[in-house]
Design a protein around this nucleic acid. Sequence first.
DNA 1: TCACCCTGTTTAAACGTTTTACATTGCGCA
DNA 2: TGCGCAATGTAAAACGTTTAAACAGGGTGA
Lengths: 348, 348
Amino acid sequence: MKKIGIKDIALRANVSTAIVSYVINGTRNVRPETKERVLKVIEEFNYRPNAIAQSLKSRRTNTIGVIAEDITVFNTPEIIDGINEYAEKHDMHILLTNLRLQKKVGYNYADTATYQKHAQAAVSDLLSNQVEGIVYIGVHPRDLTGLIHTNDRPIVYTYCYAQNECSIQYNDEQASYDAIRYLVSKGHSRIAVISGLMDSIPSRLRFNGYYKALTEFQLYFDPQFIKVGDWGGESGYQLLGELMELPDPPTAILIMNDLMAAGALRAASERGISVPKDLSIVGFDNREFSAYLNPRITTMDLPLHDMGMLAMKALCNRIGGKQETTEDPPLCKLIERDSVAEPRSDVK
Amino acid sequence: MKKIGIKDIALRANVSTAIVSYVINGTRNVRPETKERVLKVIEEFNYRPNAIAQSLKSRRTNTIGVIAEDITVFNTPEIIDGINEYAEKHDMHILLTNLRLQKKVGYNYADTATYQKHAQAAVSDLLSNQVEGIVYIGVHPRDLTGLIHTNDRPIVYTYCYAQNECSIQYNDEQASYDAIRYLVSKGHSRIAVISGLMDSIPSRLRFNGYYKALTEFQLYFDPQFIKVGDWGGESGYQLLGELMELPDPPTAILIMNDLMAAGALRAASERGISVPKDLSIVGFDNREFSAYLNPRITTMDLPLHDMGMLAMKALCNRIGGKQETTEDPPLCKLIERDSVAEPRSDVK
DNA sequence: TCACCCTGTTTAAACGTTTTACATTGCGCA
DNA sequence: TGCGCAATGTAAAACGTTTAAACAGGGTGA
């Protein structure tokens, strides 16, 4: 049983293959009567054009490549979902590559050479598959400048950065600024921060937002209120201790991810510090588990879906030759739950 | 600047295009000297063959389609990760389609017609892109028999079922059997169950495992110990109450997902029932949050990654013409945490 | 009446590969 | 010497579309 092609349709409809092509793509006027006839045959044979052949000839694959550093990391599926939504609306397909950065043997972010080898191989592979562009999804927002070459095909980075390339990130600074403003609105003025590693871009940005709010609202500023963690739960546990042993401890803490916030919560509970009665906590990331902790953590939700959409939009613009797209970075949204309350009047 | 192709390489290397093709694919002997020359030119121009053209001619795309009902659901990324691992090893590419079942307006599992329309459209689209096969990832293990037609291309279902088609699922019955056996080994004999909706396949299978273990270990059996929830946290909360108000309550409960287990935990805490001291609980799914509850839930981890690998393996076999692959379904693994202890001696 | 345009259609040349069929050479061996 | 065969190479026909260019057959206006 031979696969039927455009020739068969043309034959049956008693027209040339060109007409069939015109009918399918609407690229030229066809007499309604003829069109009808062709459509009927197409229907009858349930014919669908071979997209590979179309691509070869038309030089448009309607396919973009998505490279995920690790699809099992919490941010990635949501971003892909956003990419997908936009792609679907524009009849684009997604060729997915999962780098599996964490799971590959000896794969460590600091080992730039190994990283580059793998990433570049993935890109080359996509390019040879004639993708019209690439969106790259990082696993944490680091700088990837100069590591990847796409041979002039557009690439858009999201959840990471690359100089002179388009990259879509949410507004980290604004997010932590908003968090502080929220705490201020609840009456807090002694607000500490547990940051992530300081060589990470979001740590710096979030710290900027924290510091900006402190200045703007003329809050108490104490260098001891600034603790630097390593993003892991243990460091949150540890640093909360340090913070609360200060002679004059804070009434609220901004913690730069939910993982550390969870650790902090555990430390608080062990020390008999009641959250939010004695201490308010705002987390970051809105991880699934943050709604299940006791108390449920008030946290910053990342606009992952939007980032995916925007990344895809920017990519499509570039594919279409437009470079501008300087949209504002999407904003995080505070999810109010139970880890923030007004400070106790005696410590206020 | 023209894109360079095989002809350019052939020209520069002073051979015919056929030779270049042979060198690239190793499909025929080429004199080492010639081969060397060709490779050098390829290197020099950084030439990579156009995969689209290769596919068109060779009729092999090395691409499979993955249809995810919803990529943001917890099971899906892990499964894709598994698919990806196997695919990468076999030089296959993944064309990703995300149905976004939950998010599409008015999309409800019971509305089979709408579902079928969308799913079939996705399949047709992949087929026209000449994928060599499809793996379909469900969002919960329901029966999809007869809804999708692939025009003779192989399809493998995972996390869902379809009669007369290959579907990869973990061993639900064994999992709950193992859970009960574990509880028995801890000394429990009065074991209740909170099941999911009874029209769902896994509920039935898990109940089978529960019942089989009960019989085999000659445990106390009380119809009142069987509660049917709806998979949601609220129903766990509710049903734990009912169970514990029984004149002679169980000492342990198998709960068929972590969501309901979380609800149950809340109910227990409100009632002053201490888990695991007064009551042991085993959950299902090993959701991220289950490690953050208080106590951390002992739960059944699903072999999602393996399922992805197996699905892909089965698919590749089918693509290669082999139909057998009747491997055993992968097994769940108990993650021991803090929600199980020996029953108190006074209620034993 | 004729030159011209318009519309709908066909012809055939691409697109960048793979692969079949054939050509050439050289070598071993009867 | 001549034959068969292995090893290497080439030419050209696909693969299933799109699309530029040519063409047919009426109108239409001068």
